[in-house]
Amino acid sequence: MSDPESSPQIGQFVLITKGREAGKYAIVVKILDDRFVLIADGEKRKFHSPKKKNIHHLEFFDCVSPEVQNSILETGRVTNGKLRYAISRFVNEQVTDLRKGDN
């Protein structure tokens, strides 16, 4: 799932692997440079105060939320509710896929 050669995209789902919030899911809301991104989850990390993270401390998924990506690219912002909804939907799909793989 994680490909170090590909660059992160706005709206891409990530799993935080290092730090206090390890094990939580978030979405990339801004790319600062080739090493750092800003992430938000709509709950603890709101869109107006995202967390700056090193890309080596994140696991990137191939999935991008089109609603979040379009909102940020068109208006420059996204609602926290949309972030929460996209993450909850993504996590539910991921958990379902993982459970199917265990059987």
Rank of each mutant, 00 (worst) to 15 (best):
V37L: 08
D97T: 11
I31T: 10
K82H: 02
F61W: 06
D97C: 03
F61S: 06
S6D: 05
G42L: 05
N70L: 11
T75C: 06
E74K: 14
V28L: 01
K51P: 02
T79F: 06
L83R: 03
A22W: 11
K53W: 11
S65R: 03
Q9F: 05
T75W: 01
A22R: 15
S6T: 09
R84N: 06
E93V: 04
E93Q: 12
G42P: 07
K46W: 04
F61C: 02
L58E: 05
E59R: 15
T96N: 09
D97E: 12
R99P: 02
E5P: 01
C63M: 10
V78F: 05
E67A: 08
G19I: 06
N70H: 12
S2T: 13
F13S: 07
G101T: 03
S7H: 13
I72K: 02
F47Y: 15
G19L: 03
N54H: 08
A86L: 00
F13W: 04
E93G: 05
R77V: 06
K53Y: 15
T79H: 01
L98C: 10
R77D: 14
G19E: 05
L32P: 00
R89A: 15
F36T: 07
P8L: 04
I10A: 01
P8H: 03
N70M: 12
K18A: 11
D97K: 13
L83N: 02
F47D: 05
L38I: 07
S6Y: 07
K30Y: 02
N70P: 02
H57T: 11
I87C: 07
R99W: 05
K18L: 14
G101M: 13
F13C: 00
S2C: 07
S7A: 15
E74M: 14
G81A: 06
E21P: 03
K24R: 15
P66V: 07
R20D: 08
I27N: 07
K46H: 12
G101W: 13
F60P: 00
P66C: 06
E93T: 06
N92Q: 08
S71V: 00
L83S: 04
K52D: 08
R89G: 04
V14S: 04
N70C: 08
L15M: 14
I27D: 05
S2I: 12
G23K: 11
S7P: 06
